[in-house]
Design a protein around this nucleic acid. Structure first.
Lengths: 160, 160
DNA sequence: TGGCCTTGTGTTATGTTATAACATGGGTCA
DNA sequence: TGACCCATGTTATAACATAACACAAGGCCA
C-alpha cells in the first residue's frame, strides 16, 4: 500500500483510493462488515488528503444522491475509527483516511498545514519510541496517543 | 513555580493556585490586563487539575454569583490561551491551567487519565527534541504541537 | 477639555459538532 | 418460526463555539 503524498501533493489518487478501499475490504472480511453506508463514508473521506468534518461528509452524501442524517455518518465514522481505517484529527474535529497499514492503530502523528489544509501522516519510529518512553516514565498505561502539529507545509512555504 | 502533581495527586493546592495567579499577574503586568472576569475564569480553571469544559466554567460562575454567558467565558479563555496561562486539551474540548513557566507556549504534552480524569502536564526534553526533529524532517514550519495521551494513571492502576 | 481611539464587556441570536432514545428491518440459526 | 444480533432510520436535543452589534471606561493628544 502506498499512499505517500509527495511534497507537491501530486500522486496517483485514483490508485490511492482504490488501494485504501481494497485494504478496507480485506480488513472487514470477518464479522465487521463494510456495509454500503460505511463504504460510502470511507470513499468520501478518501476523496482528498484533506480532513473532512462530519457535516462536510453529510453535505457530500446529499449531493451524491445519498442523503443521510448525522447519526448515520457518525456511526460509520466510529466504525471506521474502530477498524483503524480512518483517523480523527482532534484539533480540527475532522476525519481523514488512514494511510498506514499498521494494525495497532493507537499511534499516529499528523502535520496539518494551515494554508492548504493538507494533513500528512507520519510514522516516525524515533518519535514513536520517544512517546512510548515519556508515557512509561510517568507510570501511565497508554491507550491512545495523538500528536498533531499545526504549521505550514514545505509546499506552501515555497509558494509564499 | 512548582505545580508538580505527585502520583498520589496530593499537593498543597492552595499554594499551587496562588502561585499560578501570581504568575498570571506578573505576566499581565503590561498592556495585556488580567481583568476581573479573566481572573475569575483562571481561578476556576485552577480549582483542580482536571480539565474543565467551557460550560462547566459557566456553571461554576453561575454558582459563584457571577453568572455569565458563553462569549464572556470564551473570550477569557482565549485571552488566557494567548498568554500561555492555560492549555486547551483538544481531545476533550476542555481547558486546564498551564503548570509550566515556559514562555514559548507552543509545546505541551498531556497524559489524561480516563478513570480519574486528571491531566498531567509533561515537559520531557527528549520528547520535545524528537517532536522538533520529526517535523523538521518533513519540511514543516511548526506553529504549534500538541500531544495528548489517554490512558490510566499510575494511581488509578494501583486502585484497580 | 472634547473628540476619538482602543480595549473590554454585555447581549441576542445562531452556527457547528455530536449523541440519546426509540423504532424498523433483515439476516441466521437453534 | 421466533429469538437474537446487527445495522439502519428518525426525531429530538445536547454540547461546544462564535457572529454581530451596542455600550462603557480609560488613555491620549490636538
Amino acid at each position: 500500500m502506498d499512499h505517500a503524498i509527495t511534497p507537491t501533493g501530486k500522486h496517483d489518487h485514483a490508485h490511492c483510493v482504490s488501494s485504501a478501499l481494497a485494504a478496507a475490504e480485506a480488513r472487514c472480511a470477518g464479522t465487521a462488515k463494510l456495509t454500503q453506508s460505511r463504504r460510502r463514508v470511507l470513499e468520501i473521506v478518501w476523496e482528498s488528503h484533506r480532513p473532512l468534518g462530519a457535516y462536510d461528509i453529510l453535505d457530500r452524501m446529499a449531493k451524491n444522491g445519498n442523503p443521510a442524517k448525522p447519526p448515520t455518518v457518525y456511526r460509520a465514522l466510529n466504525f471506521l475509527l474502530e477498524q483503524g481505517l480512518i483517523h480523527r484529527l482532534e484539533s480540527m474535529n475532522a476525519f481523514i483516511g488512514c494511510g498506514s497499514s499498521r494494525v495497532d492503530g493507537h499511534a499516529a502523528q499528523f502535520l496539518i498545514c494551515r494554508d492548504c489544509n493538507m494533513a500528512l501522516e507520519l510514522d516516525d519510529p524515533v518519535l514513536r519510541k520517544a512517546l512510548d518512553r515519556a508515557a512509561e516514565n510517568s507510570g501511565f498505561k497508554v491507550d491512545r496517543c495523538m500528536v498533531e502539529f499545526t504549521g505550514v507545509c514545505a509546499n506552501c512555504q515555497k509558494a509564499a
